[in-house]
Amino acid sequence: MKWNWQQEDWPNFTYKTEKISDFEAKFLQRSGMFFGAYKHITEDERKVLIVDLISEEALKTSEIEGEMLSRDSIQSSIRRQFGLQSTIANIPPAEQGIADMMVNLYETYSDKLTHQTLHNWHKMLTRGRRDLECIGEYRTHEEPMQVVSGYLHKPTVHFEAPPSARMQEEMTRFIEWFNDTSPSGKHPVPALTRAAITHLYFVCIHPYEDGNGRIARALTEKALAQSIGQPSLIALSQTIEASKKDYYQALEDNNKGTEITRWLIYFAETVLAAQENAETLLEFIIAKSKLFDRLSGSLNQRQEKALLHMFQEGPSGFIGGMSAENYISITGASRATTTRDLQDLLEKDALKKTGQLKGTRYWLNI
């Protein structure tokens, strides 16, 4: 079997432009609508949105690779880097590293791509690792770099990347292509097309011992941000993680040849879904602001603490809704006080209720 990098026309990817043109138009239209709404929220609300999106992307891009990290630690690290938190303590290296990479991506999206950019990201991602030979440099081992699954004695090889000896050459060509196809480059390529090719091209080279998927998704967001002239603020990794099997299948379906129309369509649909998820979060933050403005001065500290806790759970809220027991746990209130507080929040239209007796659950009324 030949892989795409073994084809004579590698890495000259081909595709049917007409199949992706409508997606390109929708992406630009939605980007304009999103940032139009973004301008109408306060500076504090923008910071909340940015921190929420970046921290969730950091969390989910790691989960795609099977690494489960602490949301609180990632968010704490990101908040400190944006000057929203003065102290930071006991943040594990993995959480600190992915947070550093995502903030660097946000702050330097417009910069040209270099070998050093990628090496720095790899150092951040692998902070605290002792099991890798090459950290902050391309792989050098002689054995094949393979993506496999199944039993050790009979593995299924899903992909084999170019040999390590070709990494400097392959990556130099990749970086030149990335910069040349930017909006200010010699040969600009439309936003979604460039982002999709960036992702597939990079993971097929697979230049590092580990971290290739996370860096590929970061490069994708860098490409999108350069195309719209500002950080893209989309929930890309969140969207991919929700349908992870489809993501890996799409990659596998497009690693044996250089005609990649199917990949472009899959990726464009994923990006548009990611935009929708980011729009939902923006609407959620706006609704939160309106709710607290309406209830200003009418909530006691327990009620405010409980509502803030519910908002921290995001648009999906508490799984199964918040119970009276949840309220007691959050606020430390007695059961009688909890009953009065919740009834008051219902009367103020801050919450809505479903179920009865022990099955009663409360939801944000937004």
Rank of each mutant, 00 (worst) to 15 (best):
F13L: 07
Y15E: 10
S21C: 06
R30V: 04
F34C: 10
G36M: 07
H40D: 14
I50P: 01
V51P: 01
A58Y: 02
I64P: 06
R79G: 01
R80E: 04
Q81K: 03
Q85V: 00
T87S: 08
I91K: 02
Q96P: 00
A99L: 01
S110F: 09
T117R: 12
L118I: 06
R127C: 03
R129P: 00
I135F: 09
Q146T: 13
E160A: 12
P162W: 04
P163S: 05
Q168Y: 04
E169C: 01
W177Q: 15
D180V: 00
T181I: 10
S184T: 12
G185Y: 05
Y201E: 04
F202C: 12
V203I: 10
C204R: 12
Y208D: 08
G211C: 04
Q226F: 07
A235V: 00
L236I: 11
S237T: 05
T270N: 08
A274L: 05
L282G: 13
L282N: 13
L282S: 15
K290F: 09
Q301M: 07
Q301V: 04
K305F: 05
P315M: 12
I319Y: 11
G320S: 13
A324N: 03
E325A: 11
Y327W: 11
T331S: 04
D341I: 00
D344P: 00
L346A: 10
D349H: 09
A350M: 05
K352R: 14
L357T: 08
I366W: 12
I366P: 00
